[in-house]
Design a protein around this nucleic acid. Structure first.
Lengths: 202, 202
DNA sequence: GCCCCGAGTTGAACGCGTTCAACATTTGTG
DNA sequence: CACAAATGTTGAACGCGTTCAACTCGGGGC
């Protein structure tokens, strides 16, 4: 971890890692199938930290907007230490053939765990949305989360303030949009959107 | 191009490229600063092809939905030959430190050219949207395009049919949403969204 | 005591992307 | 024409991720 933080992902060598761990190069490969595998460790560590931090938020907040904002903001906090080399980190995750991709079958568990957080965000709140939309909301919020992550990766502002501002600004809009989804004129389009999502469920 | 198509990005070696071109390894590096640079060639080639194909669509269609759908579908057509190794292609593009990232300063020109297509899509049509939204629409459609690209990269269906279905299904919704944006209740939220976008224009 | 098996360890070796000092060729100038 | 500067060209060399045949070693089975 120190090596990655100091030298970045590409700057850190397997030989350096082996040396640092006091083992030979070959032994490093005995325990980790490759350099990518080391990222997995980060990935699930971050996920666990986020889950724990999110739970704390969800214990204290009951308002939907506050819950959503809390969960998203807390992710920025948890991910902050890794921001510097998050680029090369997510570079590998963007490869659809990589098991690290958030859309890959191998990530299904992690994705489900993450979606569960957002299900909790919705279900523990008093949010009222169009009935057709409700069951789709957790995965849509997860997608929003992925969008925030993408923004965060490209965010060069100190302490990732821009990402925090984005979350603070976007969440009330999501909240409003949720309410709006029940208005008759809007509900029609919302139902269409949900129908489109359903059609991709094979 | 043949080599990339046959062996994928990682499977293609600079030595192989040099051999195939009948020059030495060193010469390959004289003309291309690195393997990444070769992707740039694809990138702009595809962009040019898309621009040309999009223009043809925009010459014949006047309805907004038809124009948008045409431009997006035509991209899938243009990109189809490269779909196999598009993964490793976009893997590098996802790195925010890479000049290949669609959000990087180096891609500003390409991004502007692409956004211009969508400006044409909007301005050449009879679309009526909330006045505040209109100037933002081109970049929002470009963002939609990036979403389609992301979906396309992960699309394993033959001939990328799923992506085409997505476009066919999503475009009418965008169209409806555009109309909806003028309805008083909705307009408020739309204005808020635009205000949020504006606030990130520093 | 002996043997063996499997878990753990090692560093040489491979192919890769990339760099670079040396060389070859073309172009411009007197 | 000469000859220097600019423009190409080359393959050896470097460091990297990764592989693998050879090795060490502890602890059962007889």
């Amino acid at each position: 971890m120190d090596l990655f933080r100091t030298n970045g992902f590409d700057g850190t060598t397997m030989r350096g890692i082996a040396d640092g761990a006091g083992v030979s190069l070959g032994s490093a490969y005995y325990y980790f199938s490759g350099k990518e595998h080391l990222i997995q460790a980060f990935y699930s560590q971050m996920q666990d930290d986020h889950l724990a931090a999110a739970r704390k938020v969800l214990e204290t907040e009951s308002d939907f907007a506050a819950r959503l904002r809390g969960v998203l903001t807390v992710w920025v906090d948890v991910a902050a230490p890794y921001h510097e080399f998050a680029g090369t980190f997510f570079k590998n995750a963007a490869d659809p053939t990589s098991p690290l991709s958030p859309f890959s079958p191998e990530s299904a568990d992690a994705r489900a765990a993450s979606t569960a957080i957002f299900r909790d965000v919705v279900e523990g709140s008093d949010l009222k949305v169009a009935s057709s939309l409700r069951p789709r909301l957790p995965e849509l919020l997860w997608l929003l989360h992925m969008g925030v992550v993408l923004f965060w990766v490209h965010d060069r502002s100190p302490r990732q303030e821009r990402t925090r501002t984005l979350v603070a600004g976007a969440v009330p809009l999501i909240d409003k949009l949720g309410r709006l989804s029940r208005v008759p004129v809007v509900r029609g389009v919302v139902n269409d959107v949900v129908a489109l999502l359903d059609s991709f469920d094979d």
